[in-house]
């Protein structure tokens, strides 16, 4: 398994788990309307996300090329897949933020205000969407196993 594929799998697993855990913290016990009021829910949310970043960068460190190890770890094909996956992830995040904004507008139009808890959700979930969408994109492109080099 190439380093790129390995990292895409672990990125998806790490951030998928973090997203699921954060969703439980956010939606259970009051939902978005009460999220900003509960100190411990915000603390647990921050802990979960901090764990996610620590796991992610730990994974990058553990899957790095070892000094003195032979062979090429990433090449032009991996760079091409990463570039296309990141581009796809960028578009997915744009769409996600747009759709969530439309949803919030529809839901709270009559009330005239959006609970601040939803802003926390938007901020955190945008990170999850970015990591998950780019890793899924990379895995799909890897599975297609085709392409053309650049240049």
């Amino acid at each position: 398994m190439t380093q790129a594929r390995k990292r895409a799998i672990f990125t998806f697993l790490i951030w998928g788990s973090v997203m699921a855990a954060f969703a439980v913290i956010f939606f259970i016990g009051g939902g978005p309307e009460r999220f900003a009021l509960g100190k411990w829910r915000r603390v647990w949310g921050a802990i979960i996300i901090g764990f996610g970043f620590a796991s992610y960068y730990g994974m990058l460190f553990l899957t790095r090329k070892r000094p003195g190890a032979g062979g090429v770890v990433t090449d032009e094909r991996d760079a091409d897949i990463r570039r296309r996956a990141n581009g796809t992830g960028f578009v997915v995040v744009l769409l996600y933020v747009f759709l969530l904004a439309i949803f919030l507008w529809e839901k709270y139009q009559a009330a005239g205000a959006v609970p601040v808890g939803w802003m926390w959700f938007l901020a955190y979930s945008t990170s999850f969407a970015a990591y998950i969408s780019s890793s899924v994109g990379a895995l799909i492109l890897e599975s297609k196993e085709s392409g053309r080099g650049q240049g």
């Binding site: 090449d75 032009e76 094909r77 196993e145 085709s146 392409g147 053309r148 080099g149 240049g151």
Partner: peptide, 9 residues
């Protein structure tokens, strides 16, 4: 299933 870049070729 993969066409290399000119440099790699």
């Amino acid at each position: 299933r993969y066409v290399p870049s000119l440099a790699l070729a």
